[in-house]
């Protein structure tokens, strides 16, 4: 069966006079693929996701899943094909976790029927896949944000749809929880052959896990392989101001150094060196300036000392706090 999600010439938004997605957007998403939607706030990521699950009607264009126009499906039939998890979890009532997962089966039971064996198996499978079996008897508001997100994933999995939409699934999560969520997404796209589309601000991770990216900027939408967008320099142009630059070494955004920063020549190695550089950057210095004459710093991995040469005076400090104090003196043009 042909299960490709095909968006063609789509314009969408809350009213026709001010569409959020102005220029017609066409793209496809295939089973077994993860598609990431990136772009600044207000660029239409959420609006697109809500259009794909029919919370918003398209202003023009259409969305086909296989051969069916999704906007023409009945609510129950649509819910058998497309699931959507919104950002945040504040609207979910404080009910038992198992009951949240069971809500996902509504499209299967319809208005009247109770859960049968198939529904129970789907719920159990969803709980297992997301690793929340130990939470089932807890109340939803009593678990952590990362666990809540897993429970919502389980609800979407229980819905058992071909297309799964997630709006910023990893926002507000700590780093292990974030990677847990990405791992589940990757897992369900590969083993269950689901079509996953999610929006995110976490571009470096999106590049790492997505098969395809849709990059929303102010005026246009670029889509393609993450690397293709990288080569076309789309990431740097996503945020049009000059403070952010996309650093291809780190595969993440870096702030460009402040223009009037004080040059400093720093020598050393190891972890202590790296953190000293980080401190200097934070204070507004421009480290790595080899020709600097006025200020130089020497650190050694093996001792607790920082040697500062400033205006041909040498000061040796033996704690990071003291070092920071001296550096602040430099900024304020006071003697050390």
């Amino acid at each position: 069966m042909n299960n490709i999600l095909k968006i063609s010439e789509l314009r969408t938004g809350y009213d026709n006079a001010h569409p959020v997605i102005k220029s017609p957007f066409s793209a496809t998403a295939e089973p077994g693929q993860i598609t990431g939607i990136i772009g600044p706030n207000g660029s239409g990521k959420t609006t697109l996701l809500k259009t794909l699950c029919c919370l918003i009607k398209p202003l023009s264009g259409n969305v086909l899943l296989g051969n069916e126009n999704i906007t023409l499906l009945s609510p129950l039939e649509r819910a058998k094909r497309i699931s959507y998890i919104m950002t945040g979890s504040s609207v979910i009532p404080d009910i038992k976790v198992s009951e949240v997962v069971e809500m996902g089966r509504f499209s299967g039971t319809g208005w009247i029927r109770s859960h049968n064996q198939t529904d129970k198996i789907l719920c159990e499978n969803a709980t297992e896949r997301t690793g929340i079996s130990h939470l089932l008897s807890k109340r939803f508001h009593a678990i952590s944000d990362g666990e809540k997100q897993r429970v919502l994933f389980a609800m979407a999995l229980a819905q058992n749809t071909q297309v799964m939409l997630f709006d910023e699934p990893a926002a507000f999560l700590d780093i292990p929880a974030k990677h847990g969520i990405y791992k589940i997404m990757h897992d369900i796209s590969r083993t269950d052959n689901k079509t996953i589309i999610f929006s995110t601000h976490d571009i470096s991770n999106a590049i790492a896990i997505c098969d395809k990216l849709w990059a929303f900027s102010e005026n246009k939408i670029e889509s393609g392989l993450p690397e293709y967008l990288g080569i076309k320099n789309v990431f740097s142009m996503l945020f049009p101001d000059n403070i952010l630059l996309f650093d291809t070494e780190k595969m993440d955004y870096v702030t460009t150094s402040i223009s009037n920063s004080i040059p400093v020549d720093i020598k050393g190695d190891g972890t202590k060196y790296k953190w000293t550089v980080s401190l200097l950057k934070r204070l507004g210095f421009d480290p790595g300036c080899n020709i600097s004459a006025v200020l130089s710093v020497i650190t050694n991995e093996n001792d607790d000392k920082w040697i500062i040469n400033y205006n041909s005076n040498q000061v040796i400090v033996s704690s990071l706090a003291e070092f920071e104090e001296k550096m602040k003196c430099v900024i304020n043009k006071q003697p050390l």
Binding site: P75, K80, S83, M103
Partner: peptide, 14 residues
């Protein structure tokens, strides 16, 4: 059961 979680989720759930 679906309306408990608000109109939007109720809609998404079918």
């Amino acid at each position: 059961n679906t309306l408990r979680s608000g109109d939007e989720y109720a809609h998404v759930l079918g």
